[in-house]
Design a protein around this nucleic acid. Structure first.
Length: 754
DNA sequence: AATACCTGGGTTTTT
DNA sequence: CCCAGGTATT
């Protein structure tokens, strides 16, 4: 490790940096906030900063903690840091996602929160299954109360850093009736206790437990980390939630050497607990902070940036930033209207073909949708056109049934208290342990106050079980122990194959005559071969839990089809943005749930979408769209009006002419355009509601005091949409779609006329 | 244990 | 309309 104090101005990693980037790299001490707009080279600055920390001797690799949100970002950072430093091995460095770093730390201190260091990290699916069990045990009927709703509340608490003893008193109106506050708290407590019993964590717990440990000075853990990490770097800071914020601030409170990179205009995860105010308040948190703005964009052309800038300017409460570029272009942002979603998909497909003819690779083209329900039309059309495409964000490899089953075996072998794994595989393949036996085991385990596997180990030595199950379970328990004994004696890959073979799991699919069986066997093979990259079972399971990614292999060029959320951080020569319609984008539910804040987040999403484009962006919308089987006429997105006129090329008039000649869309009658669209024919469309606060044009207030009847659809400012189930004078029982059943005063709800 | 029917729910989902 | 999950049926 070179330790020279001065670095020549020509240090290779400094070359080609613009002045603010260079400042971002060289301001090593004290809190730094780098406001990095889309395409401004933030990863470049971040990697150079790491190199600079090391080259100047300011920090050693072990003293740097670099945090990202996604594995992809973490890998890129690792890779590029390694590259800048001449390909050195960065394997042991503390560069990773919030969750992977937290897991790594928590394994060292697990006992402080009642866990053992080999705890299992459970995914959403297991989380929900576990909660359902807790609910059942507590006599809460999961038909009256949606478990997902409760899980949502618990997750939210975890995201806010609230362990059960820290949850403040909450408004009874906020909880799903007929649940009471104490009941909800009991559920949370039991859920957490159950997790500890199973020696397991959900994602939220990884950070929550760690912060719990950090908060207690008596254990000295935080002080230990203070001594260890002198410099902390955080990517995508605008997406941090409260617990992540607390974690970062606890870790950095000794030295304040916290460098955060982010873009408030790209905060699109508030619905997952991300809190933009974390980045907005950075200066308040650290009055001595250096704020650096990266505004020169190296990705997009002038019209694209001007369109994006003009759009995002409609948001309030920004830190303020204007991207600029030297890249001229005559290609304006194109706006086109189509008749319906299938027409829209055809239009995009045709455009893709024409772009392709200009020698643009399909890899450089993306279709970014607001909702995954939009995807089908494109998939169908791409198939008929013979355009190859890939969908990002479909079902994941590790979520497939056969993979989860296989992992169930590995998990149970690794960690005997993992009841969720036990339940999953104890009778897969069929071993004659039916529902009755399983439920007997659960009752016995509860009585013995042990997880299932240890309880079974005990039970098979008693005469409590019938002979059949006893013999089966004896063999099962023996197998699990035997496989555990073998794991260190051979390669992980061979071991896994052996377990899957000997358990009869592979045979189960081999004997299965259904169409999917062969594919499942292939997947299992892939799983086993992927395990050769790991040298311990624990490491493999950790990878699976935290890195749920498909290893994407390079194939022929394909168009990428994905949601706007999935597109953050990516770039394409040509980007298609379909479905710019009121209600879809900006999305109605987002606005119902969060009002103006929701609308602004939708606008940021639009901003992210446009800024993905390097050379050309094409926005489309359909005049009518089929939702839940019914066609509805649409209203163009207000975002279209918000794009500065000189940045867009409005092709809508042109389209109308084509239709008039009957040259397009034979499948759809042209008659609807006759007098249908109100603003038709005007050169510039009259603006959509100038005051974006008009949340829903369908809401009409009808004499608020007396117009209610049972079954009436209503809207409540806070709880959203619902149906009246009972009326008592001015008090209504309303079953809300999202918030559950509540008593509300009639003057707080509006009648919805559809 | 396998199959048929029914009901509810359908925005985004970094880990 | 279309899917998943749960319940009822055989």
């Amino acid at each position: 490790m070179p330790h020279e104090q001065s670095v020549t101005p020509s240090a290779p990693y400094l070359q080609g940096l613009n002045p603010p980037q260079r400042q971002a790299v060289e301001t090593l001490d004290g809190p730094v906030l780098i406001l990095a707009g889309a395409g401004t080279g933030k990863t470049r600055a971040l990697t150079a900063r790491v190199a600079h920390l090391l080259q100047t001797g300011t920090a050693t690799p072990g003293q740097i903690l670099a945090v990202t949100f996604t594995n992809k970002a973490a890998n890129e950072l690792r890779h590029r840091v390694s590259g800048l430093l001449g390909g050195i091995d960065v394997a042991g460095w503390w560069i990773g996602t919030f969750h992977s770093l937290a897991a790594r730390m928590l394994r060292r201190h697990a006992e402080l929160v009642g866990l053992r260091s080999n705890f299992t990290i459970i995914d959403d699916d297991d989380q929900l299954r576990l909660l359902k069990q807790v609910l059942e045990l507590q006599g809460v009927d999961s038909k009256t109360i949606n478990p997902k709703l409760i899980l949502g509340i618990i997750d939210k608490w975890k995201n806010m850093g609230l362990t059960p003893d820290r949850v403040p008193n909450f408004n009874a109106g906020e909880l799903p009736q007929p649940l009471t506050g104490p009941q909800l708290m009991a559920i949370y407590r039991n859920f957490q206790e159950r997790l500890v019993t199973l020696n397991a964590c959900d994602f939220g717990d990884l950070l929550l437990h760690l912060v719990t440990i950090f908060r207690d000075p008596a254990n000295g853990v935080l002080a230990q980390y203070h001594a260890r990490y002198t410099h902390i770097l955080v990517d995508e800071y605008q997406d941090t939630n409260t617990i992540q914020y607390q974690w970062l601030h606890l870790l950095s409170q000794a030295r304040h050497n916290l460098c955060c990179v982010g873009d408030d205009d790209q905060s699109i995860y508030s619905w997952r607990g991300a809190d933009v105010s974390n980045i907005l308040n950075f200066e308040k948190d650290f009055p001595e902070a250096t704020i650096i703005r990266l505004e020169q964009n190296y990705r997009s052309t002038k019209p694209i940036l001007a369109a994006a800038n003009g759009l995002i300017a409609h948001n309030k409460g920004r830190l303020g930033k204007n991207l600029w570029t030297e890249e001229h272009s005559d290609d304006l942002v194109q706006i086109t209207v189509t008749m319906d979603q299938s027409d829209e998909a055809r239009f995009v497909a045709e455009q893709i073909e024409s772009v392709q003819r200009k020698n643009v690779s399909l890899d450089e083209i993306a279709v970014l949708v607001r909702a995954s329900s939009q995807m089908r039309a494109f998939e169908e059309r791409f198939n008929t056109f013979g355009i190859s495409y890939r969908v990002i964000g479909g079902p994941r490899f590790y979520e497939r049934q056969e993979i989860r089953d296989a992992l169930g075996y590995f998990r149970l072998i690794n960690q005997h208290n993992d009841d969720l794994a036990f339940e999953r595989i104890v009778n897969v393949p069929k071993r004659g342990l039916g529902a009755k036996t399983i439920s007997d085991l659960q009752i016995a385990a509860r009585r013995l106050q042990r997880p299932l596997f240890p309880a079974v180990e005990y039970l098979i030595q008693t005469d409590e079980l019938k002979t059949g199950p006893r013999l089966t379970l004896t063999k099962f328990v023996g197998d699990i122990h035997r496989w555990l004994g073998l794991v260190a004696t051979m390669s992980l890959r061979d071991w896994a194959a052996k377990v899957l073979e000997e358990s009869g799991y592979v045979a189960m699919w081999r004997d299965d005559k259904s169409i999917e069986a062969a594919g499942r066997l292939d997947n299992l093979k892939e799983l086993v071969s992927a395990m050769s990259n790991f040298d311990s079972l624990g490491a493999f399971l950790e990878h699976v839990a935290l890195v749920m990614e498909n290893q994407e292999r390079k194939e022929e060029p394909r168009v990428t089809l994905m949601t706007l959320h999935a597109a953050k951080g990516l770039e394409y020569a040509h980007v298609f943005l379909p479905g710019w319609e009121e209600g879809l984008f900006p999305n109605q539910r987002s606005m119902d749930d969060s009002g103006l804040a929701g609308l602004e987040e939708e606008r940021r999403l639009a901003y992210v979408g446009i800024t993905r484009a390097k050379h050309k962006a094409t926005i489309t919308y359909a005049l009518r769209r089929q939702t839940y089987g019914e066609y509805t006429d649409t209203v163009p997105s207000r975002f279209i009006e918000e794009l500065p006129g000189d940045t867009v090329s409005d092709e809508r008039q042109k389209m109308k002419n084509v239709w008039a000649q009957g040259g397009l869309g034979a499948a759809v009658s042209t008659q609807r355009w006759g007098g249908g669209t109100p603003n038709w024919g005007q050169k510039k469309w009259s603006p959509q509601p100038k005051t974006p606060l008009v949340i829903d044009a369908d809401i009409v207030v009808v004499n608020p005091s007396s117009a209610f009847r049972v079954g009436q659809r209503v809207f409540h400012e806070k709880f959203g949409y619902g149906k009246v189930t009972d009326i008592d004078d001015d008090k209504l029982d309303v079953s809300f779609e999202k918030a559950g059943t509540k008593k509300v005063l009639d003057r707080f709800v509006n009648i919805v006329e559809k």
